[in-house]
């Protein structure tokens, strides 16, 4: 009979990434940079929400944006044209999410220089926003090293999304409910939605907005302003 040797591993597949993410957060704390990881389904209005939010904050904070997509650079160009802030495009090479390593590479490109060089200097940015790949499954599992996680749920997607994608809602610090201008045309129950979100995550802040008209965006901008200030203390 053949001899089989068994090598015991007993290791979570996410362990290395979790460690890299913690290390990245440590670096960001030292440099005083607040990294926000923004997630959502495709088409929920991430880019429009970002443009509205950045235009309200760009006089108060130095902001940069990293757009992550499988392909194209339409979002990075759109952000730069509409807000004037630094914006770069990351390609995930077919992958459905960004991990901590890819995020760090992106940050190095935004801030400039080698990672070791960068860490010894104060950053030129207060707030870096990572627009993750539009997807509610994988980005929830891979910690990017962000300080806070935010997600956008749009009204047409339905109020039962928190029940279908529990992990995403359980890791988000803030849930922005977008496209509230179309509430009269959909069977979207705002109170039920808040209840479902809090079932998954009692601490989540819920902010209803309309990125198109700007309604409610101030509240999200203020939430960010407060979180950035707290991180820099």
């Amino acid at each position: 009979m053949e001899n089989v040797k068994i090598i015991e591993i007993k290791k979570s597949v996410f362990e290395d990434n979790d460690r890299a993410a913690d290390a990245l957060r440590g670096e960001l704390k030292k440099k005083g940079v607040f990294l926000l990881n923004l997630m959502s389904s495709p088409g929920s209005g991430k880019t429009t929400t970002l443009i509205q939010t950045i235009n309200r904050l760009k006089d108060k904070l130095r902001i940069a944006v990293m757009e992550a997509d499988i392909d194209s650079d339409v979002d990075a160009i759109k952000i730069k044209e509409a807000t004037g802030v630094e914006s770069i495009q990351l390609h995930t090479g077919g992958m459905c999410h960004l991990d901590a390593e890819m995020t760090e590479q992106g940050l190095t490109a935004v801030i400039g220089g080698q990672p070791s060089e960068v860490s010894s200097q104060p950053s030129a940015f207060d707030l870096v926003i990572l627009e993750n790949v539009g997807n509610l499954v994988c980005p929830a599992e891979f910690d990017t090293g962000a300080v806070k996680n935010a997600m956008i749920l749009s009204v047409p997607e339905g109020h039962d999304k928190p029940l279908k994608y529990p992990l995403m809602f359980s890791i988000c610090d803030v849930v922005v409910i977008n496209k509230i201008d179309v509430l009269p045309y959909f069977d979207f129950d705002m109170e039920k939605c808040k209840e479902y979100i809090h079932m998954r995550n009692p601490k989540a802040t819920v902010i209803p907005i309309c990125a198109k008209t700007g309604e409610g965006v101030e509240a999200f901008a203020n939430w960010l302003l407060k979180e950035v200030a707290r991180w820099k203390e």
Binding site: I7, I9, K10, K11, M199
Partner: peptide, 20 residues
């Protein structure tokens, strides 16, 4: 409703088997 997951979300490499 005060419940939490005890186990079931593991994605873990348990072991490698190598033929001599």
């Amino acid at each position: 409703e005060k419940t939490w997951l005890l186990r079931g979300n593991e994605v873990e490499i348990k072991e490698l088997r190598v033929e001599n």
